[in-house]
Design a protein around this nucleic acid. Structure first.
Lengths: 338, 338
DNA sequence: CGACTTTGAGATAGCGCTATCTTAGTAATC
DNA sequence: GATTACTAAGATAGCGCTATCTCAAAGTCG
């Protein structure tokens, strides 16, 4: 007897659907993929058969035969930051309904890990990749280029041939905060950055530039590679109070830090904004309820996810340009803390 | 000429590795999968060849040929809750290094969506599934059972044949909070629950039971299906102040809500805990820095993710029992707010 | 020492789909 | 009306791996 593997997966195959519909397997395949050259009547028969048999295509077989998957990789630097979660949700909201599988790669703000993730996930032949910013290892960049997989960059902007990106100007946002603090009469400004990713540095640059343009000079800059957190905000705020009592305005590059500072200020009896103005970044949920309500920069992270995913989709179906820069802007939300 | 599909994927195949190593393809396959019956010397040759050619296996081909993938599905009710993010990170920390691909399914606390996700992801033939709690649609349960894919349940406990679960007793946690508030002399207790998922209800049950056991009765219960948030905490706290001024202790089923209440209390000049004791749940980052520092129940969400993933792995390689209940406990962290 | 396990490596045959190539059948062109 | 040009549906041949089956070589034993 001819040998046949018995798998008993119990799953319906395309062949069964085709048989029931009375067409060849390839026609069934074409019908289910809505390929034009199939007679509408035949297509309808195939769809009915598929429904009747509860047919579910096998993604592995499809990927193997067509050398392309239906998955899209999203690389983000952290899940622990609410910011990226909102972006991710928006991305999924666009991609999943369109039948794409969203693979999430969290590289913990680590270039080596990002490179490793790219290497790994590239073996899944993703249809496209959504990346956060432009700062990555040379090897990672090479891998991406060599793979030929369409990429869309999120969060930062860069006008360069072949780059599709969706974000806002981190520099301008930083500048806006500096201008705001200066407009409040603050002159001894401190910049507090944690995590030190590329975006924080860009905000810092814009902020410094704005201060310089206004004819002043930054008074203090604290940059720490530690991840941003409420606790860290408490510590850094205390450090500023102790070591730099002259500071009258602080730009925390992340709301978490500003939250911690606000708590500590309440505890220490330091008046915000009377004594020190505080500005955060991202306008995370809760910022508006802080005591005092926190001035922050509202970033369009959900829209970024949405638009980036849509741009990628357009790139995939060929209706998009391969060089686009979508600037979604930001909004300085002025509240009590400044 | 014989027709051959030109794909130009440029990717090395197992056949090339086998050729370079001078063995048959199947032997190369076995060697790379570390299957015992391969001569160590041959295996070494194969590994060298694979490294030299930068061979990366094709997951689709592997999945198709073996009728099993290397992916594991994790279903969580929300990404927006920091709680689940920590669980997720822990799960990935265990699974990814072992070569598994972690598929994340977020069902937004919606049974229909969970069912849909299960239906969809099951077509990827995941090796295993990590689920949150036991509360799901009948259809979803059926799908899971029919699929035969090994499952591990997180967060809740249920001693039942064939169930592997890792979590803690939500009831006991609720009871512990009630006892604590009573021990502080609080007698007019309010329970505030949002989202109304199964776990919140379990905490509520334990809490009520404990109050009854102590010979008292709950004074107020606010349950809203809205998602938990700082803003909601503000609103509900205000509602309690206005409509139930007699309340002297509140158990917020989520820290978010307690955060909002704390802010509003500061703003309104309501003294916590002098006038009202406040207890949160989950001990999210920030709870310890709140003003006043928030009493909360620290839940072992990271350990739950870790242990659940490990249990699933054991189930997969056959070294685990199919009925296990791992109770990781919880800890009431008493701080200033009570 | 010959019949009988064990073992390890290779040969073969698909997994369930889709890319190509063919081939009838139909329409268009002169 | 015969030649050319399309079209739509089917036949064929894999995609890159692994499950099984085969078979020769190497033990094992009474």
């Amino acid at each position: 007897m001819k040998h046949t593997r018995s798998r008993a997966t119990g799953r319906t195959t395309l062949a069964q659907v085709a048989a029931l519909a009375g067409v060849s397997q390839i026609t069934a395949s074409r019908a289910l993929r809505s390929i034009a050259s199939v007679d509408p009547q035949l297509a309808a028969r195939v769809h009915d058969a598929a429904k009747a048999l509860e047919y579910v295509p096998n993604p592995a077989a499809r990927a193997l035969a067509s050398a392309r998957s239906q998955s899209i990789l999203v690389l983000i630097p952290a899940l622990s930051n609410q910011l990226f979660i909102e972006t991710l949700e928006a991305v999924q909201g666009i991609l999943r309904p369109r039948g794409f599988e969203v693979l999430i790669g969290n590289y913990h703000y680590c270039q080596e890990e990002e490179e490793e993730l790219i290497r790994n996930y590239l073996s899944f032949q993703p249809r496209g990749i959504l990346l956060t910013g432009f700062n990555r290892s040379e090897a990672a960049t090479q891998l991406l280029a060599k793979s030929g997989v369409p990429c869309v960059y999120m969060m930062e902007l860069r006008q360069e041939h072949g780059i599709v990106c969706v974000g806002f100007s981190q520099e301008e946002a930083g500048a806006k905060v500096a201008d705001h603090l200066l407009s409040r009469g603050r002159r001894k400004l401190a910049f507090v950055g944690a995590q030190l990713d590329a975006r924080v540095l860009q905000r810092r640059d814009g902020y410094q530039q704005a201060i310089a343009t206004a004819g002043f000079a930054p008074a203090l800059e604290i940059m720490t590679p530690e991840p941003s957190s409420v606790e860290l905000g408490v510590d850094l705020f205390n450090r500023i109070l102790m070591e730099h009592p002259e500071i009258d305005g602080i730009f925390f590059c992340n709301d978490d830090l500003a939250f911690g500072a606000s708590f500590e200020a309440l505890r220490k009896g330091v008046k915000i904004p009377a004594q020190i103005s505080v500005v955060g970044f991202n306008d995370l949920p809760g910022a508006s309820q802080m005591v005092p309500r926190l001035t922050s920069v509202r970033t369009p992270r959900a829209s970024i996810g949405e638009q980036a995913a849509s741009s990628l989709l357009r790139l995939l179906d060929g209706t998009g340009q391969d060089t686009v820069t979508v600037d979604l802007g930001f909004e300085l939300v002025v509240r009590e803390s400044s």
